[in-house]
Structures are given as structure tokens and as C-alpha cells.
Nucleic acid binder design. Structure first.
Lengths: 242, 242
DNA sequence: TGAAGTTGTCTATTAGCATAGACAACTTGA
DNA sequence: TCAAGTTGTCTATGCTAATAGACAACTTCA
């Protein structure tokens, strides 16, 4: 009576996928952490790299991991809890969740105030503005793309400053503003457009949370108004009633 | 995010095999019971008959089921507990186990006593004997092949009698012996020879328990001496110390 | 800027899985 | 003895799994 391999009839890629999933579930790979390379996984399971790729593909389809070409495959982070209150700082929220907040400038340009922007910022229509397009990440995971408008008179060269400090908090601190608070927040949802989807590494047709917000300094003077698009599958907003 | 079939990466035959094994474990098919035909199983699982055959083959290899050509596939019985004591009756032991004892004559012939046989039966060397080759089963499962020798003088036409009664107990009762008891029992083991293997439905190279025994009547007079070959994988002898 | 390392994609080959049909070999029960 | 039903075996076909190699596309870091 020959002893049967316990896994006969179960595809290799399935065994590999189950193994990786178990490892993640057991916490042997933390959320956001980089998995070993496909070659290395192939060696540990003693299978072909293509077999590993198939296993990872199924995990990616289920949202457990995310592959980044040229970089590696990462354990998908849990949906980030994003509280909305008067003190809302991306870096603090992400840091409190155990992740490293990162930011990167996509584009900075001059703009002029539409009527809506002018009203939000307490300026006149047509006032000169600086428009900053930025991507914000937790570890390696893109969280949101935000378009910020600031007064070009009050924050000259804001684009260049942001490029170096990569943080809105640090940007305004550069201009002597040590504190600010959220003045208004409006939330809606939409389907990511092509450029946002690309930047957020989202599949086509996926939803984003669209947040229009304005921050003011301690004197109540508007500093910046933003339109941020959050990857809906990666965050959940917590509204604290007070 | 398309929902993945829970069984993707698991071969169909494996799923069928697991399903049948679970059904047996849950008692939905009793030991010794006949499974539905391969065609019927194929329909319930909605797979090809050959896929069912593969599933059954793996279960058979593990000893959970046994296929009988032309008849059906049966759930393998548990190893039969076969107590060895002075009152040892195949039919009683098998019946006590909840199975139907069956016997069938393979061959009956005249023989003469070797010195060993003569000693066992209390006869002289060269005395005329009847030799009965019989197969004994529990339900449909072959348990043992036994070669029995009886005195041709005391039990004339024993072969024909056995052919009709199919039981050693009934055979000797036919000659007026209402009771008998085990006088000696010796146990050893061997590999089944080709003919025994075929009769016991054993794979080549499988072991048999070889039991040499002699029964005597209430007066202590030897009745029959036998050499039985039990399928080792289907029985376990219980030696009761008293 | 370049080298090393990563994932993505392509072609190709071999083995196993699953299906289908036909018929043989055998058992069972009428 | 026969018909129906069963398991066993054969051929054939298409699809999936798994392996192998090569190179492209991209990121990271020195």
C-alpha cells in the first residue's frame, strides 16, 4: 500500500498560494511589508517562478498582495482608518497607524482663483494661486492624490518648497504658520479618472473618495483649499461626533 | 474583483474522492455497504465516469473501498476482531461483528495422511482423508482460505456435504457431532501465494496469517485439522488469556 | 548615470487532468 | 440460460498545470 502524497490532486500554485496566505495570516509578513522575490519564493517552495507568479496573481486578485514592477510584491495594508476632525494631518494619521507617511510632488503650477476657490480662500476671483498636485502614500501604498491651492501672494514659490519638504504641514510652517485646523470638509465619491487611477495604482473603474477641504490658521484666515481623491479600497473615514 | 471558485486548483477527482470519504466517515455508507454505481456517482458530482474511477482508485489504494468487477464498489469493513479461544466458530465470530458469514467450497478431494496430519488427527500415516479447500467471507469480503482435513472413514462424502451446508459447524453436525472445541492453535505469517491472493482478492506480496488448528469433539477425539490463511489486513486475532 | 534586482510578457515543451465513446469481463437475479 | 447492470480497459481529444528560457520594463541604490 504505497503512501499517497497528501497534496496529490492539488495544483502546485494553489499550495504555494495557500502557504503565502497562511504566512500573512500568521503575521510572518506584516501589512505593507515586501514579500521575498519571486525567484526566492520559487526556491523555498521548489517550484518554477511561473508557478509562484500564478499563486501571487490569485492573491493579488483577492487583494491580499500587490505587485509593483521593478520593486517587489507587497502585503496589502489594512484599510487605513482616517479620522476626520478639526486637527487632520495626513502624516500624523498615517504614522499613528504604524505606517510611514510619504509624499511626492506630481506637479506644481500657477493658477488663478475661480469663484469657488476664491470664496473658500477668502480671496477675490482671479487672484493668483499656486496649485500643487501631490501623491501621498502610507509606506509604499498610494493613499490619495490631492490638488491644493494656496494664495500665491502669501505663499510664493510654494511649489518648490513642497517639492523639498513633501508635507503640507511643513510647507506652511516654512511660512511661519505653526498650527492650522480644518475649517470645512465635504465628502463625495466618484470613479477614478485615468490619471488618478494610474497614480493611485487602481484598476480602471474603481471608486475614489473625493474630499474637498479647507484649512485655516489660528486666526481663522484660510490657508489652503484642497480636492483630494482617496483610493476608496484603502481608507475609511471616521467621522467623530463631538 | 471576480470571485474565485473555492475549489480552483484542486483536481476534480480529488474533490470527488474527498466527498466520498467524508460520506463514509459520516456513516452515510456503512461498512461493507455497496456504493452507488460509477455512473450514478458521476451524475451526482456531474463529472465523467473516468473521473469517478480515479477517485475510487485512490480510495481503494488506501483501503477505504474495494471494487468488485461486475458487482459494485464496497466500503471496506473494519479489521475483523477474531478472538481465539476454545470455542472458535467462524460463523459466530463474523455474525457477532454484525456481518453475514458466508462460505464457499473451492475444491474437495481425497487425500492421505502425512505423518504430521496423522498425528494431529490421531490416525495412522497414510490413512484416507478428505481434503476441503474453502473460502470464508464476511458479507462480501473474503476473510480466509482454509484447507481442512478430516478422516474419510468417519466423515464419508464430507466434500459434498460441505458444498451444500457451507459451514464446518453444520458439516460435523451432519455426522452427529453437536459440539466441538479448539484443541490447538499455531499462528505464523507468510506472503500469500498466487492462488490464495486471487481468492482473497489480495494484491501481490500482501501478508497472510497462517493458522494451523485442530478441533476435537467433546470426548477429545480429533475431528478436523486445518491450515487457514487469513488476509492480514482484514483481521486481527484476539488472544484471550484465561 | 549605471548596475543590480525586481516584476511583466512572450514562446515552447512536457506531463497530468478531464472528457468521450466503445467494448470486454464479470456478477446478479429473474 | 439470458438480460441487465456492474467494473475494467482501451483509444482519442482538448485543456490546464508546470517547467524552462529569454528578454522587456521598471525600481532602487550606490
Amino acid at each position: 500500500m504505497s503512501m499517497q502524497d497528501a497534496a496529490t490532486g492539488v495544483a502546485l500554485w494553489r499550495q504555494v498560494a495557500d502557504g503565502i496566505e497562511r504566512a500573512i495570516a500568521e503575521g510572518r509578513f506584516a501589512a505593507g511589508e515586501k514579500l521575498p522575490g519571486e525567484m526566492e519564493i520559487a526556491e523555498t517552495y521548489r517550484v518554477n517562478r511561473h508557478t509562484v507568479r500564478r499563486a501571487l496573481a490569485t492573491l493579488a486578485e483577492r487583494g491580499l498582495v500587490r505587485a509593483e514592477r521593478g520593486s517587489g510584491t507587497y502585503v496589502e495594508t489594512q484599510r487605513l482608518a482616517y479620522p476626520l476632525r478639526s486637527r487632520t494631518r495626513f502624516s500624523e494619521i498615517v504614522g499613528a497607524g504604524g505606517h510611514e507617511p510619504r509624499g511626492q510632488l506630481i506637479e506644481a503650477s500657477d493658477d488663478v482663483a475661480t469663484r469657488e476657490l476664491a470664496r473658500e480662500l477668502g480671496l477675490k476671483t482671479g487672484a493668483p494661486l499656486v496649485r500643487i498636485e501631490a501623491l501621498r502614500l502610507a509606506d509604499r501604498t498610494p493613499i490619495c492624490v490631492s490638488t491644493s491651492w494656496l494664495s500665491a501672494e502669501r505663499f510664493p514659490d510654494a511649489g518648490q518648497v513642497f517639492a523639498s519638504v513633501r508635507s503640507m504641514t511643513k510647507l506652511v510652517a516654512h511660512y511661519g504658520i505653526r498650527d492650522y485646523r480644518r475649517w470645512s470638509t465635504r465628502i463625495t465619491a466618484a470613479i477614478a479618472d485615468a490619471s488618478d487611477a494610474a497614480r493611485l495604482d487602481l484598476a480602471l473603474g474603481r471608486p475614489v473618495l473625493v474630499v474637498d477641504s479647507t484649512d485655516v490658521d489660528p486666526d481663522g484666515q484660510p490657508i489652503v483649499t484642497k480636492r483630494s481623491r482617496f483610493a476608496a479600497e484603502r481608507v475609511e473615514f471616521i467621522v467623530e461626533s463631538d
